[in-house]
Computed example of a mutant assay.
Amino acid sequence: MIKRRDTRRIMVGSVPIGGGAPISVQSMTNTDTADVERTVRQIKQLEEAGCEIIRVAVPDLEAARAIRAIRAAIDIPLIADIHFDWRLAVAAMEHGAQGIRINPGNLGGPEKLARTVAAAKQHGVPIRVGVNSGSIEKDLLHRYGYPTPDQPTALIESALRNVRLLEQQGFADIKISIKSSDVLTTINGYRQLARQVDYPLHLGVTEAGGLIAGTVKSSVALGILLHEGIGDTLRISLTRDPLEEVQVAYSLLRSLKIRERGPELISCPTCGRTRIDLFALADEVEKAIQTMRTPLKVAVMGCVVNGPGEAREADIGVAGGIGVGIIFKKGELVKKVPEEELLTVFLEELRKMEGFLEK
């Protein structure tokens, strides 16, 4: 049983973070934020996949002003990602951002930070202090060296320094992230930070890579931390479609029995007995279940010999044969279907089961 670390609770829009709230799943758009139509379309797709908080880049005033129209068209809280320019942070909040991600030390000095914090107080907006290995102040790098697994001190001290800047302004509606592209540095950095603060922590491995490398690195680092009870919200950062970030995040949470959303897909790795295009079948089933919410166990197996037996615990499954396939439920055969109709019939049965269980 995982015992969660005790933290303060903050609210990003309607989503609670910390204080025992469910670990929330975030992602970030890769559209031009000023292109409201494209940005909203992508956020709607992410909402369907289970994204609970969305972050958008705000590189200029046009993007900041677009937030109002984007907010009006979506159902999940929106965070503005700001670098260096305090005016963009203020403008984003004035136009409806429900959270901002900044590095307080990079906003141009105490006066500009004070104006940013004043706007956050006025609009009830929490601030994420986001520090990456590449954004650490030079004096801290000189004193502690570049963050490593054995010595992540510069990363932690940078975050604490920036948190203190906010605290000096009388602001405590804070969450913190300290991201590295190195798995062990990320793990040890968050472990040490968690012992020093009670603010909620946003987890992530920055610049993690593409689908395979990024999934592995993120799952190892975040999986270990989550199992230790560290982390209140997370983003899986992949050089891929943001939808895949959300899918990986829920798979990770499910694997640790922290949260379940939608069906779990189990499938065999194939062998010489496989006589159908199992890869294509599994891909299509995986796509179909992404927007489903009922926590079913769905199996896609390569042969009728072992399929129902090996996947006996699956709520519903499909297994291929030579020119034919079977559909089974809890290990029991319910239908035999020609191969060319197998996917269509199986998805119909799956949706029927989902509809029945939702009633």
Rank of each mutant, 00 (worst) to 15 (best):
P147Y: 07
P147L: 01
T148G: 00
D150G: 14
P152W: 00
P152E: 05
T153V: 06
T153H: 06
T153L: 08
T153E: 14
A154V: 04
A154R: 08
A154T: 09
L155H: 01
I156L: 10
I156D: 03
I156N: 07
S158P: 07
S158Q: 11
S158M: 07
S158Y: 09
A159V: 03
L160F: 07
L160E: 08
R161V: 02
N162M: 05
N162F: 00
N162H: 13
R164A: 06
L165T: 13
L165W: 03
Q168W: 04
Q168H: 12
Q168K: 14
Q168A: 14
G170P: 15
F171A: 01
F171Q: 09
F171V: 05
A172R: 04
I174P: 06
I174Y: 02
I174K: 04
I174A: 09
K175V: 05
K175N: 13
K175T: 04
K175Y: 00
I176K: 11
I176A: 05
S177F: 12
I178K: 00
I178V: 11
I178G: 00
I178M: 02
I178C: 03
K179H: 07
S180Y: 01
S181G: 07
V183N: 01
V183I: 15
V183W: 00
L184I: 15
L184P: 04
T186L: 09
I187E: 03
I187A: 02
N188Y: 14
N188K: 11
G189N: 04
G189M: 09
G189P: 09
G189H: 05
Y190G: 03
Y190I: 05
Y190M: 03
Y190K: 04
R191L: 01
R191S: 11
R191D: 11
R191G: 09
Q192D: 01
Q192C: 02
L193I: 00
L193P: 12
L193E: 02
A194W: 09
A194D: 07
A194P: 10
A194G: 03
R195K: 15
R195G: 08
V197K: 06
V197P: 15
V197W: 13
V197C: 13
Y199D: 04
Y199P: 14
Y199S: 03
Y199T: 00
P200N: 03
P200V: 13
L201K: 13
L203F: 15
L203P: 11
V205P: 05
T206G: 01
T206Q: 09
T206A: 05
T206V: 10
T206Y: 09
A208N: 08
A208Y: 07
A208V: 12
G209V: 12
G209D: 02
G209N: 01
G210N: 10
G210Y: 06
G210H: 08
G210A: 14
I212Y: 07
I212D: 01
I212C: 00
I212E: 03
A213P: 02
A213I: 09
A213Y: 12
G214P: 11
G214D: 04
G214E: 06
T215D: 06
K217Q: 10
S219G: 11
V220H: 11
A221V: 13
A221H: 05
L222K: 08
G223Q: 08
G223C: 13
I224Q: 00
L225M: 13
L226H: 02
L226S: 08
H227C: 12
H227G: 15
E228W: 08
E228T: 00
E228V: 04
E228Q: 05
G229K: 12
G229V: 02
G229M: 05
I230H: 14
I230A: 14
